[in-house]
Amino acid sequence: MKNKADKKDADPTIQTPPETEQKEQNTAESASGTEPKAEEAKTAEVQPEGARKNDPAAKIASLEKTVAELEDKRIRLIAEMENQRKRALKDMEALRYNVMTDTLHPFFQVFDHFSMAVAATSATNNLASLLEGMKMIQAEFDKAFSDLGIERIDATGKDFDPAQHEAVSEEASDTVPAGKVIRQWCFGYKSGERLLKPATVVVSAGPAGKPAAEK
């Protein structure tokens, strides 16, 4: 039996039945047709996604959404900046009011006393009493300045200092050396190391008629 089967396989004259050939052909065609259908299915799945990406209407809608979001952020930022500006102005106004009140408060009593002194001059001829009242008012002014940290500059008899003094004129003097202050017209004022107002003074030019080289 085995020898007969071997002979059948080796013998080229033995033909395959037609039914078997038809089945094999159908199987081959079926296998070869499966791949194109699978490729078509993949293409069908990918194509709509790509089409959506390239769709102008979809792009416009996406851009409009982005623009709307950015516009909303811009409006919110502008509103926040405006609120901060209003808060800053309100704080500055409150600070200005507090500084003004603290600065003027020490002078209220001084002005009241000065008004009383002016009223008293019409009721008395006592100049000594009036002078005493003026000195008291001056002392109150000095205290008010001191409370604010303001120091008065008295330049009389001192060397002329352009950093603190303002010379309005120069006069010859046989008693006051050249370069020193003969007379002070107005006091100067400073706060710490900061000059608020220079003292206006008259400066000595030395003895009259003396050459400048000898002064």
Score class of each variant (00 low, 15 high):
T43A: 02
A51K: 02
T43H: 03
L196M: 12
K197W: 09
D72H: 08
V99A: 13
E80H: 13
V181P: 07
A155P: 09
D6M: 05
V176W: 01
T156R: 10
E29T: 13
K190I: 05
N26S: 10
V203H: 05
A123K: 09
S30F: 09
I182V: 08
L148A: 14
K37Y: 04
L77V: 13
A28V: 14
T101I: 02
G133I: 01
M100L: 15
V203W: 07
S32E: 12
M1H: 08
P36M: 03
I137Q: 06
E82H: 09
T27V: 13
A31N: 10
E29N: 11
P18L: 04
T121H: 00
A68W: 09
Q47V: 00
K197V: 03
Q84F: 02
F108T: 12
A117H: 05
N125T: 07
C186H: 13
S115Q: 07
G149D: 12
D72I: 04
Q184A: 04
I78Q: 15
N125F: 03
A213T: 07
H165R: 05
I14P: 05
E80D: 15
Q25T: 14
G33H: 12
F108R: 02
S191L: 07
P48W: 01
D142A: 10
T124N: 01
K215Q: 15
A208Y: 10
Q15R: 14
A163I: 05
E170C: 03
V176R: 03
V67G: 00
L89G: 06
M134W: 06
P48R: 01
P211G: 08
R74P: 01
S191W: 13
E21L: 15
F108P: 00
I137N: 12
A5L: 12
R85M: 13
E49R: 05
Q164G: 03
A61T: 06
K143E: 08
A51M: 00
F145D: 11
R96L: 11
E80T: 14
R87H: 08
